[in-house]
């Protein structure tokens, strides 16, 4: 188990190093001068030079890469070009919105998908199965931003149950804060839950056909008992993979939903930073997302090993 763990850890570090290089290179190529963007059409050359020097943009690319990476290792993500506040602080502030939103959406999607998937699998071919498959097909097909706008129209503009967007802030209390994340979380969870339910169903059906399930049935277990005690645990492997991927997607992919609900999350920060050529923020946030994805995958790998002891020997 330890060897498995260490090998996975090494792969994680290597991925991060390569990713930092690729991210930096990509942003070096992007045209646009942050100083010119900030000072606008009437800026004079000497003013631009003064700002560039302050931002450290007059250094060579290698020196800037080194300053960025070496700072990041000790937790210093640099100072934003436009906001002029430490990137780490800004990201921490945005994570207070993005992380709970991702967890909220994932909880919702799991809470919907598990029962729905199990229910459909246990009633294969019958009405319930067909209904779940139909609804999830729709859930996968509907774009989440469109669904979000629809919810805003109904629940915010017509019924006035929710605000059309914005984040109440944790200082307003857990209740109002969660309330302001509810519509976005539902919008994010709907397609995720649909995919997850379908994966859950097919994984379960597959393991229900395995020999060990037949043996369990032969020993006298009912179909339901065999499903809950034997098939479910084995069906969790592909489901965990999907959950891991979905969490990563929820962290990085909430940009559009954050824009629809004007939430001050990480996605919106990246969006603003890209349009302002606040490269240091873009680099650091993308790196952080890579880090999150890699770590989540790492944890999923560990979880596999816990669910299925056979995997511990493999790498």
């Amino acid at each position: 188990m330890l060897q498995f763990f260490l090998k996975r850890l090494m792969a994680l570090v290597l991925t991060l190093v390569v990713a930092s290089g690729v991210i930096f290179l990509c942003l070096e190529i992007v045209p646009g001068d942050p100083a010119l963007y900030m000072l606008g059409l009437n800026a004079q050359e000497d003013t631009l030079a003064a700002l560039r020097a302050e931002l450290g943009l007059d250094m060579g690319p290698l020196a800037r890469y080194w300053a960025w990476v070496s700072g990041m290792v000790v937790g210093d993500f640099g100072i934003s070009y436009t906001y002029r506040t430490p990137v780490a602080e800004m990201v921490a502030e945005r994570l207070k919105v993005s992380l709970p939103l991702a967890v909220y959406a994932l909880t919702l999607s799991t809470a919907i998908a598990f029962p729905a998937g199990i229910w459909a699998a246990s009633r294969r071919g019958r009405g319930a199965d067909i209904a779940v498959m139909g609804v999830t097909q729709l859930g996968v097909a509907i774009p989440n931003f469109w669904f979000a706008m629809l919810m805003v129209l109904v629940f915010a503009i017509q019924l006035r149950w929710f605000n059309a967007g914005g984040f109440a802030g944790w200082e307003a209390g857990v209740g109002p804060a969660l309330k302001s994340l509810t519509l976005p979380a539902i919008a994010l969870a709907l397609p995720q839950a649909s995919i997850l339910a379908r994966v859950m169903r097919s994984a379960l059906l597959e393991s229900l056909n395995e020999d060990y399930v037949r043996t369990a049935r032969a020993k006298g277990l009912s179909r339901g008992q065999a499903l809950w005690r034997h098939a479910l645990r084995n069906a969790l492997i592909p489901v965990l993979t999907i959950i891991g991927l979905q969490f990563a997607f929820l962290m990085a992919g909430a940009i559009i939903i954050e824009n629809v609900f004007y939430l001050p999350g990480l996605g919106r920060l990246v969006f603003q930073a890209i349009s302002a050529r606040d490269l240091i923020v873009v680099e650091s946030v993308v790196m952080l997302l890579v880090f999150a994805v890699v770590v989540v995958n790492f944890l999923v790998d560990i979880a596999y090993a816990l669910v299925d002891p056979r995997l511990r020997g493999q790498v």
Partner: peptide, 18 residues
């Protein structure tokens, strides 16, 4: 001052009187 960049979101925010 509340910052709402998306035009559709801006419309919704005014309509919902946020």
């Amino acid at each position: 001052f509340k910052f709402i960049s998306d035009p559709t979101a801006a419309f919704a925010a005014v309509m919902a009187e946020d």
